[in-house]
Write a protein that binds this DNA or RNA. Structure first.
Lengths: 197, 197
DNA sequence: CTGCTAAGGCAAATATTTTGCGTTTGAGGC
DNA sequence: GCCTCAAACGCAAAATATTTGCCTTAGCAG
């Protein structure tokens, strides 16, 4: 579709997309955000502005597209030997990255997109990561385990909520608190009780 | 400062601000979001575009300014007789309002602002509302009560998180679940145990 | 190799944002 | 009430950004 990653993999489309994304990432680091313009990006990427406008619509959507890719997990997830440890390692890194000024910008860019679909995709990635951690824990024989939804609501939600609205209130202690609390709940009320995925 | 509500209350500044805000609210309902432009708003408000640019900087910030006011609580909060009931009444109305397309737009507009300060202010309002509900519960003699932070993390966070990323997963049952769970936690671990405000 | 279509280039036409400068407004001193 | 002063606005020109029509190119399919 419109802003899909690659209409024809390996073709010109893909090359243009990559050049533009790279130009954005490059320029974003070099100059203040308000100086970032489509014509500027186009020049750096070696394309004409109209190409960008036709594919992405506007600067906002282009930035959201680039930012969304940055939210995509690439690191293979640490294996600490326990669900609590894995969770902490992952969310802590996430927090670290997103409390930085550029990190918050990434979050804001994604939220700034008009397309709900894009945000939902990011959410899905987070969900998948958590599922993976749960699977690993299950295969290690850990029990009882919380459901994915419990982890989303109990750990990710407070984290993202505070990142967006009150980043200065975040610290590792809170993170640990949310994780411990969510895991404790799972002990008190086995996850099978609610029909989670 | 720059986008402050009223530099000179009652003066021309205030009149212009009101006219512009009204123009935004009016036009926002009449045409598609992508057709909303500064010159259009200026015309409707009876001012010149440059006035808007000088005061708000850009469309994005103007929209954020208007949206932030909509997030400000105006309804005096229902009094149902119990903390659980008050919480549900308030959050349910909030959810109802924000799951609508225009409501989500309001949230997105606020998140789209460059000024962290604006978002923090919105968060502070939510915090104040919750504090008020807690005070009332306390004066009714309800105990044990959760802390404000518990309510923020346990109820508001999942609500806002899902509103932003996965609004289709929201429903009243979840809301009730979060509220019940958070209140139950307060029973299990008295709030005084953690040094919350 | 040939035809076909999606995507890109180019440049003209529009629309927007920015800026300099003169004018108005309203607060405060007298 | 009158005067002074600075902030905020209006206006219009200049600078930028965005949109659009038309033509060219690239790459897939037969």
């Amino acid at each position: 579709m419109s802003t899909k990653s690659a209409a024809r993999p390996g073709g010109r489309s893909a090359r243009v997309q990559q050049a533009v994304h790279e130009a954005v990432r490059g320029l974003d680091g070099e100059l203040a955000r308000e100086r970032l313009t489509v014509p500027l990006i186009a020049e750096r990427a070696g394309v004409t502005p109209s190409t960008i406008y036709r594919r992405w619509g506007c600067l906002r959507e282009l930035l959201a597209d680039v930012a969304a890719q940055r939210l995509q997990p690439e690191a293979p997830l640490a294996q600490t030997g326990s669900l609590a440890g894995d969770l902490f390692a992952w969310t802590q890194e996430y927090m670290e990255e997103m409390t930085s000024t550029p990190g918050r910008q990434v979050l804001a860019d994604v939220l700034g997109s008009t397309h709900q679909e894009r945000r939902t995709r990011c959410w899905q990635w987070q969900r998948d990561q958590l599922s993976l951690l749960l699977e690993r824990a299950a295969s290690r024989g850990e029990a009882p385990l919380p459901g994915v939804e419990q982890l989303l609501d109990g750990v990710m939600a407070p984290l993202i909520y505070r990142l967006s609205y009150a980043p200065h209130t975040l610290d590792e202690a809170r993170l640990r608190h949310w994780i411990r609390q969510t895991l404790d709940e799972a002990v008190a009320a086995p996850s099978a009780a609610r029909g989670e995925t």
